[in-house]
């Protein structure tokens, strides 16, 4: 058995049926080792987001095998999948998906709330992770009043609060200017280097992709190229 956190073989996924049928993925195979950073690069409509959704167990594939730490995902119960997403996966989205009228702290502790962690512990862990991302002073602010970079840091804090093993980031810098985008990238990569959190980044930004250990290029639902970044590899 391999040591990969996630492994897929010949994964396929299609949407719609009949003439409207669209094959988003046409047989992709991939292995993600613990602690590595992987960029899935492609244009919009290439299937890169679909691949990430399947890897993050947000969706089920039509064909192929998906192994999570060596276990076939199709054999996991709904509850187990939910717990996996809650405890082992963190999500960073381009559109942030913060609850605008809730405070920063409330947004950050949402995964803990879902996990059923008590109020006091929620607050302590939420504040700790906000501290780490230098957002402690914003804890009581409403999410809507933050700048884009601050919002994305809150999103990262939310992804981190449950100490995940893998963070999935979908265009994490897509809505940010170059400088703040760079800052957010630095945070993500330092988490990867210092805490060994596996990073799966979906992007069309080649510069961001270049900072990852490995780049996988995808087009029309197929892998077209895979590059190991020698200077970045550990």
């Amino acid at each position: 058995m391999d040591t990969s956190v996630l492994a897929v073989r010949n994964l396929s996924k299609s949407y719609g049926r009949g003439t409207a049928r669209f094959d988003a993925l046409k047989g992709v195979s991939l292995q993600i080792q613990a602690g590595e950073s992987l960029a899935i690069v492609g244009k919009s409509g290439s299937g890169k987001s679909t691949l990430m959704h399947l890897l993050a167990l947000l969706d089920t594939p039509d064909g192929g095998v998906l192994l999570v730490k060596g276990t076939d995902a199709s054999e996991l119960s709904v509850k187990q999948v939910s717990r996996l997403r809650n405890e082992d996966f963190g999500f960073v989205f381009q559109q942030f998906f913060l609850t605008p009228n809730a405070t920063v702290l409330e947004n950050v502790v949402l995964p803990l709330k879902i996990a059923g962690v008590g109020a006091r512990e929620r607050k302590a862990r939420g504040m700790a992770v906000l501290e780490k991302l230098e957002l402690a002073d914003k804890a009581k602010n409403k999410a809507i009043n933050l700048s884009g970079g601050q919002k994305q840091r809150v999103v990262i804090a939310r992804a981190l609060v449950n100490n995940p093993t893998v963070i999935f980031a979908d265009e994490p810098t897509g809505n940010l200017d170059t400088v703040t985008g760079r800052l957010v990238e630095d945070i993500l990569f330092s988490l990867n280097k210092e805490h060994g959190i596996t990073l799966v980044i979906v992007t069309h930004d080649v510069e961001l992709a270049a900072r990852c250990d490995r780049r996988m290029f995808i087009r029309d639902g197929r892998e077209v190229q895979s590059l190991q970044n020698s200077e970045n590899s550990p």
């Binding site: 709904v78 809650n86 998906f97 949402l110 995964p111």
Partner: peptide, 16 residues
Amino acid sequence: TREIGLMKAMGMGGGR
């Protein structure tokens, strides 16, 4: 819709 999706993505079960 979006919040529900987010909560589900973060592992909240349909029952809850």
